[in-house]
Design a protein around this nucleic acid. Structure first.
Length: 371
DNA sequence: AGCTCCCGCCAGCCT
DNA sequence: AGGCTGGCGGGAGCT
């Protein structure tokens, strides 16, 4: 099968034109997301993805593990992952946040700072209550070090601590806990780069240079944005690397005015956003379930909106219109954070589909009233 | 020169 | 036993 998702894919096979950025995890992630985020895609086979993306399977593991950490994917079976979509992120992050805050209160007596609290927490979304202090089991030790757990802990750093900007050093040492062996730090940094590049390509975080140290630092931007902060309103290209994940980040950083009010604090904005996202997700799940019930199968699991060509769900016209209005209201308050090209196109498609569907629903209701 | 991170080896797990 | 999964660190590209 040909690779339609490679951007400029001709040169990367040519050694003379080889550029490292063509193989970056961030770019690969973007391509992988393009591959998944399409009509009719419900599950993803790793082999298939690797083939289509023209990379070895090993790289796909990295991507899926990180995506799984924020709920975008979930493992279905060996070699098979379920595509949950971007709309799953807020819920997953909220879960992580709750988990992180809960652990903050339970282990804060043994951990010295908020960053270490995160590192002390070995649990993940699937395996709660397994925070073993000894780390005696090899398996547990391995799990603790897994990219998914690291990614989740990385996310927690942003959501369970007061810090806005997390430096590479700080993140690495936080993810390491009390251990500060240089080699371990180096290893952790490598993994951190992997995770960060994927998150950057998803535009969940951005990488900037710390104004104080000039060292790289990360900021959560997906919806925790502070409207007044410089990085939230303009792109700081001078401080950003131009290869790797940043290749997908050429567009100035998102405008968050749509879902952040001047009258609200950061926390309020975030809580509101999470609530909205959850509501949106719940509605989406409702609709998806109906679609699936009515039409066989695993055919479609869409993102936040269903395309116009979708079969009608079983809800009544009135309910449908009400649902439509709710969605419209939500859509007007909330704009997706993913402003890379693929996500923009996808969102444009959803909006268009949604408008069509809305008109049809209104017409149908109108007809019912007349008869 | 130091930072960044791709690449693939290989150990552990699963079927 | 063989395939799958993914931690890990060497070392090359990049700034």
């Amino acid at each position: 099968m040909s690779s339609s998702v490679h951007t400029e894919d001709s040169q990367w096979k040519n050694p003379s034109n080889y550029s490292r950025k063509d193989k970056s995890l961030g770019l690969l992630c973007s391509n992988f997301l393009k591959l998944c985020d399409r009509e009719g895609v419900d599950s993803i086979g790793l082999d298939n993805a690797a083939d289509q993306l023209g990379v070895e399977r090993r790289r796909i593991y990295d991507i899926v593990n990180i995506l799984e950490s924020v709920g975008v994917l979930s493992r279905k079976a060996k070699n098979q992952y379920r595509w949950n979509g971007y709309s799953a992120i807020p819920k997953a992050v909220d879960l992580l946040k709750k988990e992180g805050l809960k652990d903050h209160s339970t282990v804060s007596s043994t951990c010295h700072n908020s960053a270490n609290v995160i590192a002390c927490n070995h649990s993940d979304l699937k395996e709660k209550g397994e925070c073993e202090t000894s780390g005696s089991h090899k398996n547990d030790n391995r799990k603790e070090k897994s990219l998914m757990i690291l990614a989740q802990n990385f996310v927690k750093l942003f959501h369970c601590t007061d810090v806005d900007l997390i430096s590479l050093d700080k993140a690495a040492s936080a993810l390491l806990g009390d251990m500060h062996d240089p080699m371990a730090m180096k290893t952790k940094s490598r993994r951190l780069y992997d995770i960060a590049n994927v998150f950057v390509s998803m535009e969940l975080i951005e990488k900037i240079r710390s104004p104080d140290t000039g060292k790289p630092a990360f900021r959560w931007i997906a919806w925790k944005g502070n409207p007044g902060s410089p990085a939230a309103t303009k792109s700081d290209d001078s401080t950003r690397r131009t290869f790797g994940a940043d290749i997908t980040n050429t567009i100035p950083k998102r405008c968050r005015a749509d879902f952040s009010s001047d009258l609200m604090s950061n926390g309020q904005v975030k809580r509101l956003k999470v609530a909205k996202d959850e509501e949106l997700k719940d509605k989406n799940q409702e609709i998806s379930t109906e679609q699936l019930n009515e039409h066989d199968t695993k055919e479609f699991v869409f993102g936040p909106f269903g395309p116009a060509s979708l079969p009608r769900s079983g809800v009544s016209g009135k309910e449908k219109l009400k649902q439509t209005q709710n969605w419209e209201e939500l859509a007007s308050k909330f704009r997706p954070q993913y402003q890379n090209k693929a996500a923009s196109e996808l969102f444009a498609h959803y909006v268009e589909a949604w408008e069509l569907w809305q008109v049809e629903a209104a017409n149908e209701l109108h007809k019912q009233h007349e008869h």
